[in-house]
C-alpha cells in the first residue's frame, strides 16, 4: 500500500517537483507519521508490560526459571548493516543528482543487498533464540515489535526494487524529477530509525 502515495500525481497541475515539496513526498512524510504511531502503539504495549506488570524485573524469567536472553552483539552487527544501508541509499540519490545513472543503480543494488542481509540474519536469529511468541508477554512483545519491523524492511525492499526496475527498464528519474525515489528512500530511512530505537529500547536497556 505504501507504494501508492509515492508516485501519483496531481491532476492538471504543474509537475510536482516544481513545488517546494512534491505532493508524493509530502504524502510519504505524513504516512510515516502514521507509521510512527503504529510503532508507538506497539511500544506502548511493550512498556506497559515491562513497567506495569513486570515492574521492570526485565528480562523476566522463562518457564525454566532462567531470564530470557537476547543476542546483543550479533544484532548490534546487524544493526550496523541497516544503518549503513541508509547511507548507501543516500549515496544513490546523490549520484542521480550528478546525472550518474550507473551510480544510482549500484547504490540501489547495494542498499537492497544490505537490507536483505539484515532480514536473513534476523530470521536466523529467530530460529536460534530459543523462545517463541507464545512464551510470556516478553516473547509476544519481542516478536511483534521485531516482526512488524521486519515486515517494514520487506516493504521497503519492495519499494526499492520497484525504483530499481523503473531505473533499469523505464529509464525513470532525472535530477529534477525523482519523487518516487525520494519517497522510497525516505521510507527506508524511517525503517532504519525505527530499528535503532527498537534495538536500544528492547535489546540494550
Amino acid at each position: 500500500m505504501a507504494a501508492d502515495h509515492a508516485h501519483a500525481h496531481a491532476l492538471g497541475h504543474a509537475p510536482a517537483d516544481k513545488k517546494p515539496i512534491s505532493q508524493g513526498v509530502l504524502a510519504m512524510v505524513l504516512f510515516l507519521g502514521s507509521e510512527a504511531m503504529l510503532f508507538a502503539s506497539l511500544f506502548t504495549a511493550y512498556f506497559m508490560v515491562r513497567y506495569n506488570v513486570a515492574q521492570n524485573h526485565w528480562p523476566p524469567l522463562n518457564s525454566s526459571g532462567e531470564p530470557f536472553e537476547l543476542p546483543k552483539v550479533g544484532t548490534g552487527v546487524n544493526t550496523a548493516f541497516l544503518v549503513f544501508s541508509s547511507f548507501t541509499v543516500w549515496w544513490a540519490e546523490h549520484r542521480l543528482k550528478h546525472g550518474d545513472r550507473k551510480g544510482l543503480e549500484r547504490g540501489l543494488l547495494v542498499t537492497m543487498l544490505l537490507g536483505l542481509t539484515f532480514l536473513v540474519i534476523q530470521i536466523n536469529e529467530y530460529v536460534h533464540l530459543g523462545f517463541t511468541p507464545q512464551d510470556q508477554a516478553f516473547g509476544s512483545t519481542f516478536y511483534t515489535l521485531t516482526g512488524f519491523h521486519g515486515l517494514h524492511v520487506f516493504v521497503g525492499l519492495v519499494l526499492l526494487l520497484i525504483c530499481y526496475l523503473r531505473v533499469k527498464r523505464a529509464r525513470d528519474f532525472t535530477p529534477t524529477f525523482s519523487t518516487p525515489l525520494v519517497a522510497a528512500s525516505l521510507y527506508w530511512h524511517f525503517v532504519d530509525v525505527v530499528w535503532v530505537a527498537l534495538y536500544i529500547l528492547v535489546y540494550l536497556v
Binding site: A45, M48, V49, Q134, A137, G139, S140, Y143
Partner: peptide, 21 residues
C-alpha cells in the same frame, strides 16, 4: 489466533493495556 500473551495476566501480559491503546 496465535496464543500470544499480550493480555494474558498468567503470561505476564496486561489486560488493561488494551483499553489504553
Amino acid at each position: 489466533v496465535m496464543g500470544t500473551n499480550f493480555f494474558n495476566v498468567g503470561g505476564g501480559g496486561d489486560v488493561l493495556m488494551y483499553q489504553h491503546v
